[in-house]
Amino acid sequence: MTSTPLPEEQPPAPRLNATQLPDVDVPQPSGNAPLVVDENTDLSTLTPAQLYELNQRTLDESTRSSSDLPLIAAVAPIRVLREEYDGAPAFVRQIDFLATKGYHGIRRTRGDGDCFYRSLAFAYIERIMSTPDPALEATIAISTLDAAVPLLETVGFDKFAYEDFYEELLGLLRRVGSGAPDQLSPETLLSAFQAPEVSTAIVVFLRLLTSAQIRCDPDAFDAFLFHPDFGNQMTARDFCESFVEPTGKEADHVQMTALARALKVNAKVAYLDGHDPNGAVDFVSFESALDPSTPPVVLLYRPGHYDILDTRSLEAIQL
């Protein structure tokens, strides 16, 4: 099994709070006039904080009134994302780069702090459904989960606290390739994840599973457990109780690594940050599948938010 990169080997995931910003200004330090960003702006001259603000402003615009957005949406062509960054050529170049790598679509998730867990869960099941033998892959996934569940009781979670949440995930996996009238289809999978009672239950279970994985593997994780705002080192229990188990908390690299290991899934995260002058996009890989050649699920990260990248043809997405 290929080891997952350690957290310190991965690009930082900013944990700044989103703010609503005006349409064209990137705030400067107090006392300076705001910087106007247009097609003539060289983004390589901007500080990381200014790039963050520019990216966050666009994200805010696309997720404004997020409570009215579905928990997870149908796939949209990647050009929709490109249009959001009109006037920010560094980001447009990165989006075009993603398109040249075969990422023709984006599936949005609601920006509620649970977007990583919801995105990964949906893409995880969708990938199983797309394999040559989805029923077999679903059986393997269920076996993997059943083997991981005892970790929850090992760290003190009562079975009654998680079994109903687990059952929602199992229920979907059992319908994959079942041949039954209620066999899971792309449409019914999307409908399930748009239902708050199902979607949130799966998020809660995966958060508990992530917490258990972190607590049960101190050699892998303890050295990387820091408070995201103050930088002080935390115990596994305090870290998990504060930032992993509660819903609405953004996931960091520790959580991504832990969940990939618990699910034995390969995942890649593309960082849309505007940093590369040539438009290249950094991908961080989390490789924990039993078969290293297993295709990964691929997420798109913008500061504070995750969506799913889709590799289907543009024609298929637009049908």
Rank of each mutant, 00 (worst) to 15 (best):
Y103L: 12
Y103M: 11
H104T: 09
H104G: 04
G105Q: 06
I106W: 01
I106K: 00
I106F: 00
R108E: 09
R108D: 04
R110T: 07
R110N: 05
R110V: 11
D112P: 04
G113H: 02
G113Y: 02
D114P: 00
D114W: 08
C115H: 12
C115W: 08
C115E: 07
F116M: 08
F116T: 00
F116S: 00
F116R: 06
Y117V: 11
Y117G: 05
Y117M: 14
Y117L: 14
R118K: 13
R118Y: 02
R118N: 10
R118W: 01
R118E: 06
S119P: 01
L120P: 03
L120V: 10
L120Q: 15
L120F: 12
A121C: 11
A121D: 03
A123S: 12
A123M: 07
A123L: 06
Y124A: 00
Y124T: 02
Y124C: 04
Y124Q: 00
I125F: 03
I125V: 11
E126P: 00
E126F: 12
R127S: 14
R127I: 08
M129K: 12
S130N: 10
S130E: 13
S130R: 08
S130P: 07
T131Q: 12
T131F: 06
P134A: 14
P134L: 09
P134E: 04
A135R: 15
L136W: 12
L136E: 14
L136T: 14
L136Y: 14
E137N: 05
I140L: 15
I140G: 02
A141C: 09
A141F: 08
S143G: 15
L145D: 01
D146G: 02
D146N: 09
A147E: 10
A147I: 12
A147Q: 12
A147N: 13
A148Q: 15
A148T: 13
V149R: 02
P150A: 01
P150V: 07
P150M: 07
L151Y: 02
L151G: 00
L151V: 05
L152P: 10
E153R: 14
T154A: 15
